[in-house]
Simulated assay, not measured.
Amino acid sequence: MSNQPLPAVSFQGVTKRYGVVTAASGVNLDISQGEFFALLGSSGSGKTTLLMLLAGFEKPTEGRVLMSGTSVSDVPPHRRQIGVVFQNYALFPHLTAADNVAYPLKMRRVGRSEREARVNAALGLVNLSDRGSSFPSQLSGGQQQRVALARALVFGPDVLLMDEPLGALDRRLRDQMQLELKRIQGELGITVIYVTHDQSEAMAMANRIGVMSGGRLLQVADPETIYAAPSSHFVARFIGECSILRVAATDGGKGYEIAGARQSLRSPAKDPFDIVVRPENVSIRASVEAASDDAFGVAATVRDITYLGAGWRVALELSDGQSLLASIMRGDDVAGRLAPGLPVVARWAPASVAVLPTEGSS
Rank of each mutant, 00 (worst) to 15 (best):
S42Y: 13
S43W: 07
S43V: 12
G44H: 06
S45W: 01
S45L: 09
S45F: 09
K47E: 11
K47Q: 00
T48C: 02
L50R: 14
L51I: 15
M52W: 01
M52H: 13
M52F: 04
L53K: 07
L54F: 00
L54I: 07
A55F: 00
G56A: 10
G56L: 08
F57N: 05
F57H: 08
E58I: 03
P60E: 05
T61A: 02
T61Y: 11
E62R: 15
E62F: 12
G63P: 13
G63M: 11
R64V: 03
V65M: 08
V65R: 08
V65D: 10
L66D: 05
L66V: 07
L66Q: 12
L66F: 10
M67C: 13
M67Q: 15
M67H: 10
S68Q: 12
S68G: 03
G69D: 06
S71R: 09
S71G: 13
V72G: 10
S73M: 09
S73W: 03
S73T: 15
S73I: 11
D74S: 14
V75T: 15
V75C: 14
P76N: 05
P76C: 03
P77K: 06
P77S: 02
H78R: 14
R79A: 03
R79I: 00
R79Y: 02
R79P: 00
Q81I: 09
G83Q: 11
V84A: 00
V85H: 06
F86A: 07
F86L: 11
Q87D: 13
Q87S: 11
N88L: 04
N88K: 06
Y89A: 01
Y89M: 02
Y89S: 03
A90H: 04
L91E: 12
F92Q: 05
P93S: 09
P93E: 05
T96M: 02
T96L: 01
T96R: 04
T96H: 03
A97Q: 07
A98P: 03
D99I: 09
N100A: 00
N100P: 02
V101G: 10
V101W: 09
A102V: 06
A102M: 07
A102S: 11
Y103M: 06
Y103H: 05
P104V: 05
P104S: 02
K106M: 14
K106A: 14
R108N: 02
R108Q: 08
R108Y: 11
R109Q: 08
R109G: 02
R109P: 04
R109C: 01
V110I: 15
V110Y: 06
G111Q: 10
G111K: 15
R112Y: 09
R112E: 07
S113L: 06
S113K: 14
S113H: 13
E114I: 09
E114R: 07
E114M: 07
R115E: 14
E116C: 09
V119E: 07
N120F: 02
N120H: 12
A121R: 13
A121D: 10
A122R: 02
A122F: 10
A122V: 04
G124F: 03
G124K: 05
G124A: 08
G124V: 01
L125H: 11
L125I: 09
N127M: 05
N127L: 04
